[in-house]
Design a protein around this nucleic acid. Structure first.
Lengths: 190, 190
DNA sequence: CGCTCTTTCTTAGATATCTAAGATAAGACT
DNA sequence: AGTCTTATCTTAGATATCTAAGAAAGAGCG
């Protein structure tokens, strides 16, 4: 037991070789962490968190969505959107308004301040991406995108069918799309 | 404004085409979510969370590490390890002990119960991985692993040099390493 | 019309994670 | 020996995210 603390080198070696499929999840997770950190570091200087960035980017493309629609596009649950939007409202990046036609819905609009962030923030994200894929052949990036997409699809499919035999508490609502239609969104994934 | 809620199809199409580098981060993040969810769904039936799984797996390979060493191998900060280990101790999966030689350190040992989980949990993880990469050529998986690793390395390198010129509030504490040496560990990445 | 179901937002509470800063033990150096 | 520094664990507080359940508006139907 208790081997010597592995050096960074050995850790990297560990990743490179061996461990065929297992740890794919951890590798992907680590990549996410690295990417999010890199972006967050830069966004932080403009008082924008990674969570806000996600929603800002959607709003820059299509302003005036409801919170529900925002959730779908961002691929997160409503409470996540709710608290992010509330925080963004406090920062003066968005406003929320009800409309006459359906007073349940709350539409989210960018303020001029929120809109102006676009010019500053987008280049930061582009820079992070450029750094991330430095010295990686773009054909490999393309392939990686495809693989990641396949993984997402495979797991999504599995989750749906798995629900049939294994009501794992967290997806239950989504299934019975027949009569009841809880979870109307087709999404959940970005 | 307010476009119709995008179907899963349109969302997938969105991912497939266009958006060259931007959104790579989100794609990776979504893949992480899918993988973690799939694993968590299954681990949950054995009262193990994904966070605990991370540490259990390390301990199965090398029991009796300190919290610091666990943190390094898991690639997370100490407080994360701390609370996970404390929770795992409550669940009776590990125990924590001081040793005579250096009473700062706290060694974490699996209990028999924690050790027994291995046989049950590892197959679950293997199944998730098998599902995730279904119908993906293994050469592509290999390539994806390399790309992800490059991304992690590129960003790690950037973070180091970036610290020098850009004290971005979240890295500030780490800088003044001159006299104080906060953040002593060489790691931070898994 | 009035009851019930659905949709949407909100609240509550949990987990995982981070940074910053506190506490304690060891080591080092004058 | 006494003080300063380093290492390790701990606490505190923040963010992002989730599930579960509450509240209010709308819709459908007998």
């Amino acid at each position: 037991m208790s081997r010597p603390p592995p050096s960074t080198q050995s850790i990297l070696r560990h990743w490179r070789e061996a461990v065929p499929n297992d740890r794919l999840a951890h590798l992907v997770k680590d990549a996410t962490r690295a990417l999010v950190r890199a972006l967050q570091m830069r966004l932080g200087e403009h008082a924008v968190s990674f969570g806000h960035w996600t929603f800002l980017r959607i709003l820059w493309e299509s302003d005036g969505l409801t919170q529900r629609e925002l959730s779908e596009q961002a691929g997160v649950m409503e409470p996540t959107t709710f608290s992010a939007v509330r925080a963004m409202e406090r920062l003066g990046h968005v406003v929320r308004r009800r409309r006459g036609d359906d007073r349940k819905k709350i539409f989210v609009f960018l303020t001029p301040k929120g809109r102006r962030l676009r010019k500053k923030l987008v280049p930061l994200a582009e820079r992070v991406n450029r750094i991330a894929v430095r010295r990686v052949r773009s054909a490999d990036i393309t392939r990686t995108r495809k693989v990641l997409l396949s993984i997402i699809e495979n797991l999504a499919r599995d989750e749906q069918t798995a629900d049939m035999r294994m009501p794992s508490t967290r997806e239950l609502g989504r299934l019975n799309g027949s009569g009841r239609k809880r979870r109307p969104q087709g999404s959940r994934r970005r």
